[in-house]
């Protein structure tokens, strides 16, 4: 096969800047689902050895921009960044999800107000700090929302839902911006 050109799920849709909030695409490199066989102890060890980041508790997001391990549901987390180490397959079900999910960052003053219009979880700083993550809904979409920094979030949705995600975010951003 010839050399294929990679196209981001949000190509042509981002960046979007309305008011003080900006939505932009994120290039996650690789994204791999990990579900431990039995308890997560062995996987925690294997993850630390191979990627330097352990197994997260429910609602926890570990690591940094180079390697992240984000809680993704009951007995499931995703490894974001590097290609998953082969050895992880001995202690967990390993599924490559790269290209199957769309990732965007939402940031700027008022981001929490924008997300409050779409997400039924309290994402204000007092309730939701850096290193925390939730699986919830954004509008009608199932989403994973992780706090990366003050007024900065990462949102993951199924790739096929990227245009709906951007549409919903734009509408909420315009609504918040119009209130001045």
């Amino acid at each position: 096969m010839g050399e294929l050109k990679a196209v981001s799920a949000c190509a042509g849709l981002v960046p979007v800047c309305i008011g003080s909030v900006t939505v932009d695409g994120m290039d996650l490199e690789c994204m791999t689902s990990l579900s431990p066989f039995g308890d997560a102890l062995a996987l925690d060890g294997a993850l630390k050895k191979a990627h330097g980041v352990g197994w997260p508790q429910a609602g926890q997001a570990l690591g940094d921009a180079t390697v992240r391990v984000i809680w993704f549901g009951r007995n499931e987390a995703v490894l974001i960044g590097p290609e998953a180490d082969q050895g992880l397959g001995d202690v967990a079900a390993v599924v490559d999800l790269s290209d199957a999910w769309a990732a965007v960052s939402v940031e700027g003053a008022g981001t929490v107000d924008v997300l409050a219009r779409l997400v039924p979880v309290d994402l204000r700083a007092a309730a939701f700090g850096e290193g925390q993550t939730v699986r919830t809904q954004l509008g009608h979409l199932g989403a994973s929302i992780t706090k990366l920094g003050p007024e900065r979030f990462m949102i993951l949705v199924f790739r096929s839902m990227a245009a709906t995600l951007i549409h919903d975010l734009k509408q909420a951003m315009a609504g918040v911006a119009s209130r001045g």
């Binding site: 429910a58 609602g59 009951r74 039924p120 979880v121 939730v134 699986r135 919830t136 809904q137």
Partner: peptide, 11 residues
């Protein structure tokens, strides 16, 4: 037990 108190629409 995993996520905390959540809205009915998620269930």
């Amino acid at each position: 037990p995993l996520c905390g108190a959540r809205d009915r629409r998620e269930f």
